[in-house]
């Protein structure tokens, strides 16, 4: 099935909504000086798949793992990279807030684990 002609424009427009993955991807691209094509390549998907990803809600909260897995299963993107991108933007965002101090840095670090990955404990 072909992609709709509004997809790219919608992905671009979604960047203004902070709860979207589009916003997260845009921040990541700014921070890491990546083009859209480069980001798609890192995630292991096409640009069209990246545009669909942009319309997703950014995974967060206690269901983070479930949400990330659902996204990667539907769009066949690299799970590790997706988690890294989200975490990177979250951490940089927390560190650069006006207060200069991350709100919950320890909690974020504790969640910084790839879903399904076994821990030593």
């Amino acid at each position: 099935m072909s992609n709709p002609d509004w997809l790219e424009r919608a992905a671009l427009r979604a960047q203004s909504a902070t709860w979207t993955l589009a916003h997260t991807f845009e921040r990541y691209r700014q921070l890491e000086a990546r083009t859209e094509a480069e980001l798609a390549r890192e995630l292991g998907c096409t640009r069209e798949a990246l545009h669909w990803l942009c319309l997703c809600r950014k995974p967060e909260g206690p269901d983070f793992d479930t949400q990330v897995i659902a996204i990667t299963e539907r769009h066949e993107v690299d799970l590790r990279t997706l988690v890294d991108v989200i975490r990177h933007v979250e951490i940089v965002g927390a560190l650069t807030r006006d207060t200069g101090v991350a709100e919950h840095p320890l909690q974020m670090a504790a969640r910084d684990r790839v879903p399904g990955e076994k821990t030593n404990s």
Binding site: P4, L21, L55, R57, K58, P62, Q67, I71
Partner: peptide
């Protein structure tokens, strides 16, 4: 708490 729900809204309503 379901990331894909927003994508589905776009797919269904746009």
């Amino acid at each position: 708490n379901e990331s894909l729900a927003s994508e589905d809204v776009f797919r269904v309503f746009m």
